[in-house]
């Protein structure tokens, strides 16, 4: 098992992802500069959070056309595992690897806090080390995390069980009060229909080291091993 972390100008969670995979899990991990056009040999690609290209034009819109992205799209289409976290999720949406879009938070504010997330299903590659309906605590840090998709798209996500994470209360209730950013149906993370591309707004890599207190994020990375 090998992991690659794609680095754009403005990425700022790249080293956190690298640290979790390489040091904590002991998986050989490579940083991949966005100007590269070929991927090193790897089984999992992480598109980390940050502010690629300063969020100019639209979040993720310019990073999506970085030279490395053709190789990333090709890797995903061949069944490689791809995880986009926060800005990485926004980039995967712009690249068309995941459906829908992330709008400005309904409060218009940048939100940085710990929230409760319900794991909707553990029947996929990314969440198999969680229990279905398990409530975990993960931090969010974003201004554009308000997930939106049209009615047909939503029905499709529900039917194919592509919604993996929802914002919830501590006891797992899905309600508007537990929704930090206005996301449709409290959606916090989805995968593609094939189940090999994940996008999520919360940051599992920030809560994966016991020294930092919470460790609810580590199971996501362990699920990939």
């Amino acid at each position: 098992m090998r992991v690659g972390v794609v680095v754009f100008p403005g990425s700022n969670c790249d080293h956190d992802c690298y640290d979790v995979c390489d040091r904590i899990l002991g998986v050989p991990t490579t940083m991949i500069w966005h100007q590269e056009t070929r991927l090193p040999d790897c089984d999992v690609l992480i598109i980390p959070g940050g502010f690629s290209y300063g969020d100019y034009l639209r979040v993720g819109a310019i990073a999506r056309f970085s030279p490395i992205m053709d190789a990333v799209i090709d890797f995903a289409n061949r069944g490689g595992l791809v995880i986009g976290i926060c800005n990485g999720f926004q980039i995967l949406l712009e690249a068309g690897l995941l459906p829908g879009v992330l709008l400005r938070n309904r409060s218009t504010k940048f939100i940085c806090e710990s929230v409760f997330i319900r794991v909707e299903s553990n029947q996929n590659r990314f969440t198999r080390n969680y229990r279905s309906n398990q409530v975990i605590s993960l931090p969010i840090a974003h201004a554009e995390g308000n997930y939106y998709i049209d009615a047909d798209g939503l029905a499709d996500l529900e039917e194919k069980q592509q919604i993996l994470f929802r914002y919830a209360s501590e006891n797992g209730e899905i309600s508007d009060i537990a929704n930090p950013n206005g996301s449709l149906e409290n959606i916090a993370g989805i995968c593609n229909a094939q189940g090999n591309v994940l996008g999520m707004m919360p940051h599992p890599e920030r809560v994966a080291d016991p020294i930092l207190g919470l460790t609810d994020g580590i199971a996501l990375f362990q699920s990939l091993l």
């Binding site: 400005r104 309904r106 308000n146």
Partner: peptide
């Protein structure tokens, strides 16, 4: 039909 929180503000 797309929510515009900035416009609302």
């Amino acid at each position: 039909g797309i929510l515009d929180p900035q416009g609302k503000a």
